[in-house]
Amino acid sequence: MTGPSNRWWWTIVAAGMAIVASGAAALLVGWWSAAGTVAAGTSGAAAAALVGVLRARQPPGPQSEERRPSGHLGYPCACAEPSRRRLLCGGAVAAALVAGAAAAVPLWSATKRGEARLRATSWRTGTRLVDDRNAPIRSDDLEPGAFSTAWPEGHGDDGNAQVVLIRLPPDRTVSGPGRPEWLAAGHVAYSKVCTHMGCPVGLYQARTELLVCPCHQATFDVLRGAKPIHGPAHRALPQLPLAIDGDGYLIATGDFPEPVGPGYWSRPS
């Protein structure tokens, strides 16, 4: 058994080195590098030397080793005795409980802080809507039936504040749970962060007035407050209250009424 089994391993070593060599060759084709050549050559030589040395010491055949008496766990002997073991186990559990309690306090406060953060975005009363080049959006920039992505001015990096801004066709408005009084010159804005798992809701079908999330195809009805009508999302996209300022630019009149994005257990409804 020893002979063939050994030869098998030597074959692997040889094959491995052949592949090292071809890998090095591939590396040289793709990435010219003198250092690479040297390194590949050296490691190849080192590998060959290693194999040579090991080969000189042919290993013996199968051997055996006695096991400790069955029942021995292999743990330090202090644990082997039942009474000590119980003590150790009890101690470990107690220590784990204390450590857990110690970790729970900061985690709990982080949770409270995290929740507070989740509730708010950068929208304030009077914040202008800007496009992806930071240009404020006027109430006549979008054609009826067109849509675009908008951010709060000065907060283009607040990914949770992004909205889809849609200019509805002239005779259209939104019905519940949408708030028609939050429209401005036929524009409606919904959070672009999917309420399923937070992907940007990027597809707008003007003909059917539907917003579709590309990730798991949640579909929201624009004319009914972006209520989900299909797919895995269960919450409407929060609507941003809009108005028009004195210079004809679109502004928000406050933050979203509820947290945007994916749900969490203590999310206020």
């Binding site: 985690l107 989740l118 969490y264």
Partner: peptide, 12 residues
């Protein structure tokens, strides 16, 4: 976020 109770903290 969907971890019960502590989700917002863990995610944060």
């Amino acid at each position: 976020l969907s971890v019960p109770v502590l989700g917002a903290g863990i995610a944060g």
